[in-house]
């Protein structure tokens, strides 16, 4: 692997997170000893049972939360606080209800650091470009409450990209959508992320999801976490060829990878829903 010579875009070293319950003072270790390297242009998916700390890790990378121990470095420098260089897409969109589509997409450009060196004309052009990119041209003057879930998510994506981050952090962005819209947006995401472009032109992305098939479809590598406390169980490399939209799901390797990842999580997932672990055993032995 040639990327050993290149320093990683993002490096987590010994990252831990514990929470202290306010009333009892009891300390809970949410994330334990997490070590991870992510290269520039990689699409990483994080999957794991509920409560394994996936969102906590994302929040720490985003700077919205502080590690209790260890260090998170981006381009070799420790991450301190949130910033536009690490853009976030939230599961419930976090769109400003009083702004139109245009206003939302341009919010960071107009009020935050992304638009600092641009004049009004350039900002407007940038906003229009990304609205077009996500396929929302014509809806610029609508308010979020007038949009469907899929459209809202595309506004959130346009906003994220318009702010020009070098790391995209996506916290279950497609979780609130119906299955068919999700399929469409997965393909859109791959296109916009640049799966048909050379690796050097792609943005680094970290995508949290519960949907294992989604993870296998999108990611270069899938980080499988386990819980109590949260830690990396295994990192699975997805060796499916790109572009994947439209072709990956029919590749036999796809199902194998999904099953491989699910077998790592299955027991814990059953435990998480309070179920009987004996039900978790597969009914047929795999022949591979």
């Amino acid at each position: 692997m040639s990327d050993n010579a290149q320093s990683p875009k993002l490096r987590l070293t010994g990252v831990t997170k514990s929470f202290v319950a306010p009333r009892t003072g009891q300390r809970t270790l949410a994330v334990a000893e997490m070590n991870l390297d992510i290269q520039t242009g990689e699409f990483i998916c994080i999957v794991g049972p509920s409560g394994c700390g996936k969102s906590t890790v994302l929040n720490m990378i985003a700077g919205l939360d502080v590690p209790s121990g260890g260090v998170i470095e981006k381009d070799g420098h420790p991450v301190r606080g949130p910033g536009a260089d690490r853009g976030v897409m939230f599961q419930d969109y976090a769109l400003m209800p009083w702004q139109t589509v245009e206003g939302n997409v341009g919010f960071g450009l107009r009020h935050g650091t992304p638009g600092e060196n641009l004049n009004k004309e350039q900002r407007n052009q940038r906003i229009a470009h990304f609205i077009d990119l996500v396929g929302l041209r014509g809806s610029e003057h609508k308010y979020p409450h007038q949009l469907s879930g899929g459209m809202r998510q595309r506004v959130a994506l346009a906003r994220l990209l318009a702010n020009g981050p070098d790391i995209l952090l996506l916290d279950e962005p497609l979780g609130a959508l119906d299955a068919q819209t999700r399929l469409i947006l997965q393909a859109e995401l791959l296109r916009i992320w640049g799966e048909t472009s050379p690796v050097t032109e792609r943005k680094t992305a970290i995508f949290i999801t519960h949907d294992i098939e989604e993870a296998v479809l999108l990611a270069d590598r899938v980080v499988v976490m386990s819980s109590h406390p949260g830690r990396v169980r295994e990192v699975v490399t997805i060796d499916l060829p790109r572009p994947r939209a439209g072709t990956a799901r029919t590749n036999p390797r796809f199902g194998v990878l999904v099953e491989q990842i699910w077998s790592l999580i299955r027991d814990e997932a059953y435990r998480a829903i309070g179920g009987d672990e004996s039900l978790a055993k597969p009914t047929e032995e795999a022949t591979a």
């Binding site: 919205l64 606080g81 949130p82 690490r86 976030v88 939230f90 419930d92 976090a94 009020h111």
Partner: peptide, 26 residues
Amino acid sequence: DRKLVLAAHTMGISRWTILTRVVLPG
């Protein structure tokens, strides 16, 4: 919505601007 404030933080928006452009309209 607290998420709106967090989202604003991830866009490099200052605390004062968050007060006037996110909290006040909200």
